[in-house]
Structure formats: structure tokens, C-alpha cells
Simulated assay, not measured.
Amino acid sequence: MTSFTYDGLPGRVVFGAGAARTQLLGEIDRLGAERILLIGTGKEGVIGARLCAPFADRMIATFTDVRPHVPTEVAERARAAAEHADLVLSVGGGSTTGTAKAVALTTGLPILAVPTTYAGSEVTPVWGLTDRGRKTTGTDQRVLPRTVIYDPELTVALPVDLSVASGLNAMAHCVEAFWAPQRNPISSAVAEAGIRHLVNGLPTIHAAPSDLAARGELLLGAYLAGSAFAVAGSGLHHKICHVLGGAFDLPHAQTHAIVLPYVLAYNLPNAPQAGDRIANALARPDAVTALRELGEKLEIPKGLCELGVTELDIAAVGDDILAIAPADNPTPVTPAGLRALLHAAWSGSDPSRHTT
């Protein structure tokens, strides 16, 4: 048995269809909150306002200026809105949770998160801010939400294309947990279970978007994915996607969904046991082919070129990725290897042909 250290992260999870309608006020009371800042935008803001109607007298403000990758100027405006709050209520996806985390990072305010996507950020202590095209991430226990309410009913309105991309983003958290810097047997077991739930739910959601049981499978998979990622840390896949997303303002979930098979193919020759476990969880003999075919079935864009990224863009970010690439990545990250990986992910070519 390998020796390891596992730091279980604190946090309360409330899970179930209708949980946001029936248990939100009780969870707010449990945290002793009387002055609440709601963060949510668009449809999420409407959902949040509806959920908060029974305790509208406690709402001091609603912040709707949410942006992907949390630009620093957005973070500052959100912090100003939270000046008199004693709780940040986040209702939405990863960008909304990220904005709440930016507030908690400097104010120490507790977060109650109600996810409407499968981002998983709500169970991690990881924050991210973007300043002039460069995204910086870090880890701080202050940004870890105190309570998370998972309600499959709130995800039914999420469009199919965003649902499957968000689900594959959660899949990336699971896959990367097998070789991230703080990996351990517990995080790997959690990640493997997360893959099983995600692969159970994704095809059904694509065919029947209102299937509440499948939505529950994805939410449970996303929770497990985020939990594994929170402990294991960030590896090569996330380093690549954070640089790309910050530099070119790319859609977060779609970027992760596209890049995932290529990083998997890059690492598998030097991580065969991880590959076997991932393939086993996917119920397929070849993990790379399984993920590639799953993406095609779910109609995910094949390459970054479909998101508007150019070959020159790909060439421009190589050094930034190399500077933060994990030293213990299963396959050493070399300039030539990274160029081949990025170009394959850009063009959308067969990832199994670009292993090192």
C-alpha cells in the first residue's frame, strides 16, 4: 500500500430535486445570515430572485455583472457590492461561483452555492482572476463554499450544448485527478466514481434534456469530480485551458471538452494504470477513443479552431503554458510535445495519433 496524505475538505452538501426551493432558507439560517448578496446573471439571476423571494427582506443587493474567467475589474465591483453583506449566495455556473470566490478571497465572507451547471467549482478552494488576458489561479480555504445545494431541477433549463460541454468539463476534472500533483488513492477512487456517473448521464441528457434522473447523475458526477480535483490539484490539462481561456476569452466548458482527449492521449503512454482505470469507468477498452467518440456523439466542437482560435494564437501561448506545466506530469512536457498536442487540439485531428 502506497503511503499518502489526504486532507478532507470541509463543507456541507444538500442534494435532491427541489432542494433549492425547500431547503435554501433553512441553510441560510444555519449560517446565521441576515444580509445577503446574491450573485447571478441572466436566467440564473431570475432563478436566484425567485428562490430568494421568501426572504427578500434579507437581500441587500444583487450582482449581475458576471463574466467568464472573472476579470479583475468585475471582481472589484462585486466586492464593492458586498460591502455590508454577511453572506454571498451564488446561483449559477462556474463563472458565477468564481465571482463569489473573488469576493470571499478578500472579504472572508462565507459562500452558499447553488450550482446550475456541472462546473464543480463549488466544492473546490481554487480561485481564478484574469487581468489583461492573463489568468492567475490559486488555492485558499476562504473561497471554499460553506454549503452547496445541488438541485437537478435547476439544471433542466440549461441548453443541451452547454449541458454536455459542462459535463465533459467535469469529466476533465476526474481524468486529471489521476495524475495531478496531490493525487492519492482516495481522490482517484472518487474520480473513478465520478466518471461512471457522468458517462451514465451525458448520452441521456443529449437525447432527452428534461430527464431529471439523468440530470441528477450529472450533478452527482460533477460533485465527485470537483471533490477529486479539489484534493488532487491542477495538472497539465487545466494549465493549458486556463492559459487559452484567459488569453482568448474562450468558453470555459467547451475549451475543456475539446482539449481533454489530447492531454489524455499525451499522458497515457506513461500512465498505463490510470488509463486502465479511466477506460474501466468509461466501460470501453480504449479511454482516448471512448472520450473522442463520446464528444462526437454529444456534438462537441472537434477542435479549438471551431471556437475562433487561430494557428498563430496557439503558437503564441506555448511559452506561457510551458512556464507553469507540472514537473511531475506523466509524460514530460517538452516544447515539441506541447506544440504537437496544441496543434492537434486546434485542428481537431485524431488524438490517438499524437501520443509521444
Rank of each mutant, 00 (worst) to 15 (best):
A228I: 13
G194A: 10
S349V: 15
G98T: 11
L220F: 14
P110Q: 06
V164G: 04
L338S: 05
G18F: 08
T116E: 05
I149G: 00
A80C: 07
T139V: 15
R30E: 07
T2G: 00
A344M: 07
Y6I: 09
A265Q: 08
T356S: 05
N329F: 04
M171C: 11
G16Q: 00
H238I: 15
Q273R: 14
F229E: 13
K297S: 13
D29T: 07
G48Q: 04
A191I: 13
V143W: 00
C241S: 12
F178N: 02
A19H: 05
Q141W: 07
L168H: 01
P351A: 08
P269K: 07
V156H: 03
A53V: 09
A180K: 01
A157D: 02
P335A: 12
E34I: 00
P115M: 01
P152W: 06
G92H: 01
H252R: 14
A271P: 01
R215G: 03
A177W: 02
S95W: 14
L338W: 11
L304H: 12
A247V: 14
T22D: 12
A20D: 04
G133N: 07
R196D: 02
Y150R: 00
L218Y: 02
V74Q: 11
L220T: 10
A340L: 12
R35K: 15
R146E: 07
I314Q: 02
H256T: 10
A81F: 12
A325L: 10
S349W: 09
D350T: 09
E306L: 11
H238K: 11
L338K: 08
F248M: 15
A274K: 02
L342N: 02
V317L: 12
R215P: 03
L162R: 14
A344Y: 08
L198F: 11
G42D: 09
V126R: 08
